[in-house]
């Protein structure tokens, strides 16, 4: 039911762990719903220089987390904010229908880390990126 790419990112997740010099940390999801993603970014000169993640969740949650760290690494903030849940899904060669919400989690994770970065810089993220959202409800 999972593509080879999903299985690869699940079994060998990239960029797992924490980032000591992180200046943007986001956490999304809810243990009640069965997935939580925490993402650490080090942003400098408007570019995501480094990224790590930790995820509690099913195979798809871990794989979408992993691929999204690959997608944002080296990208500008604007480029990273443009990454949609669809782009995450496509990068994994698709996800089963009932797992699509995991790609939403990854998109939200990226946004939440960037919003945290803005706040730490004393910038209100809302006018730039709209609601940074952290869904309390299960998708």
């Amino acid at each position: 039911m999972y593509s080879e790419k999903v299985m690869d990112h699940f079994a060998n997740p990239r960029n797992v762990g924490e980032l000591e010099n992180a200046n943007g940390i986001g956490q999304v999801g809810n243990p009640k719903c069965g997935d939580v993603m925490k993402i650490y970014m080090y942003i400098k000169d408007g570019v995501i220089q480094d990224v790590r993640f930790k995820t509690y969740g099913c195979g798809a949650a871990i794989a979408t987390s992993s691929i999204s760290t690959e997608l944002v690494k080296g990208k500008t903030i604007e480029e990273a904010l443009d990454i949609s849940n669809r782009a995450v899904t496509e990068a994994l060669d698709g996800l089963p229908r009932e797992k699509l919400h995991c790609s939403v989690l990854a998109e939200e994770g990226i946004r939440s880390a960037i919003a945290d970065y803005y706040r730490r810089q004393g910038i209100d993220p809302e006018p730039i990126m709209g609601c940074a959202l952290n869904c309390a409800e299960c998708h």
Partner: peptide
């Protein structure tokens, strides 16, 4: 605790 079932099943 703190791990999800499907992930364990796949591994």
């Amino acid at each position: 605790e703190c791990v999800e079932g499907e992930a364990m099943i796949l591994l």
